[in-house]
Write a protein that binds this DNA or RNA. Structure first.
Lengths: 245, 245
DNA sequence: CGATGACTTGACTTCGCTCAAAGACAGTGG
DNA sequence: CCACTGTCTTTGAGCGAAGTCAAGTCATCG
């Protein structure tokens, strides 16, 4: 995929090679997530990776199916969820560019992963990846840091869904989306997923999400235009709501 | 630490060397958690580990303090929690023998870890551990499997606290405790932690936990003797409650 | 542009939380 | 060894917020 002569920004160029992003586990003061891999390490992974594209709403893999590949997100948003006997479909995480997923347990995938938008992925055969990780133990340490970071995210998520107030949960979620875009706060937050997905992530009914949206509007903290854009009006109150656990 | 001539069972002998236990990530059909390390790998870790003992209720480390060590549990139970501005103290996990903890983020511990019973730990300096992991990439892969396993546990926990019914949450928790003891189901489940700890883990008020206990008794599914022992009477209904998400 | 599914709104129910108080347990010192 | 005291736990009453059900509105895709 040659780039032609048009101007491209850094993230466009960068998604030609796989990267992962997380907070490294030593390195005090690393508040923000950083890219963990050197150019050489990225090439080592690229050598075993295939680039694949998955359309919106398509499923990447189902829980309980044999796991032969691990993935890195190049572009787009996905959701990780589980189908429960009760019919509930809790969303455990959303995945964005430079996230890693597909790490199996006992040879099978544990969750189902579905594209929320059109996505572009790097797909690595599990065995080939293991070989690379054994050969380059430093690269493996970065992977370890990434998985530890995911563990922290999962714990944050648990804390989030344990909160009582629906508006607080929603505010925290919006903040998460905002943080994921990186760079400065522009006030505008894109919400790529459906209300139902948000509800399943927050552990609320869709009606409760809807009411929380209305509540944030009425108290003039956030406005919503259409169903996929939010705009923060009152950052102080927004942050207080989001972090005021 | 020579063993003397008295009879010792396997787990007693085993806690002389650090081990970790998890479901490996390939190896189809590995339903149960297995010990991941070879004798040699255990010795490599032991070479950099110090054995420490922590009394009941003592704190191993506080969140936001500089992280210089990683730990493996040799014996006892601990809880992992966070102190939130609101005064809530959600428990994110309980730790048992052969669990790994203390993996930091940006050089600081993320959570607080406190002993629930008297515990015995292996303490490894972070830098020394990293050196070992770089030197032995296969050992590192086992560590990676362990962290992935913890990630799965965290996700299960999220699903757990999203359930509505308090009795269902309690049943699932009891099942978790039972599973952790390993071996066959004897019907008897030891509950080492306080009701408040259970409440903080399940995202309930202590009152709600108490009522759930009463409810399980009244419906003759589980009986409780004292505060730290449960006995399952009706396994079919118990399992249905616990897994019927 | 029309149909299908996603989302919102309203009315009612339910279940866990809060507050308050009584009861059980564990550790301490006499 | 036992009584005492502080803490943990249980129980009750009332409230509130999210769930459920039902119906109407909007947006999105063919």
């Amino acid at each position: 995929m040659p780039s032609g002569k048009e101007r491209r920004n850094i993230s466009e160029i960068d998604d030609q090679l796989p990267t992962i992003r997380a907070i490294p586990f030593s390195d005090a003061g690393a508040v923000r997530r950083a890219r963990l891999l050197s150019h050489k390490q990225r090439e080592a992974i690229a050598a075993i990776a295939v680039r694949i594209h998955v359309r919106k709403h398509r499923i990447v893999y189902h829980e309980h199916t044999p796991a032969d590949s691990v993935f890195i997100v190049a572009r787009g948003t996905l959701k990780v969820f589980r189908n429960l006997p009760s019919g509930r479909r809790p969303v455990l995480a959303f995945l964005f560019a430079e996230d890693l997923f597909g790490l199996s347990e006992a040879g099978a995938y544990v969750n189902t992963v579905q594209a929320v938008t059109d996505v572009s992925l790097f797909r690595m055969p599990l065995q080939a990846l293991k070989d690379v990780l054994v050969r380059d133990a430093h690269l493996q340490l970065e992977m370890l840091a990434k998985v530890i970071h995911e563990l922290r995210e999962a714990q944050r998520h648990t804390i989030l869904v344990e909160r009582r107030a629906a508006t607080g949960r929603l505010a925290t979620f919006l903040r998460l989306l905002e943080a994921h875009r990186g760079r400065e706060r522009s006030g505008t937050i894109a919400i790529p997923m459906s209300r139902l997905d948000v509800a399943d992530y927050l552990g609320l009914s869709p009606e409760a999400v809807s009411r929380a949206v209305r509540s944030l509007q009425q108290s003039k903290i956030v406005t919503f235009s259409g169903r996929h854009t939010a705009r923060v009006i009152d950052y102080p109150r927004f942050d207080r709501l989001a972090t005021g656990f």
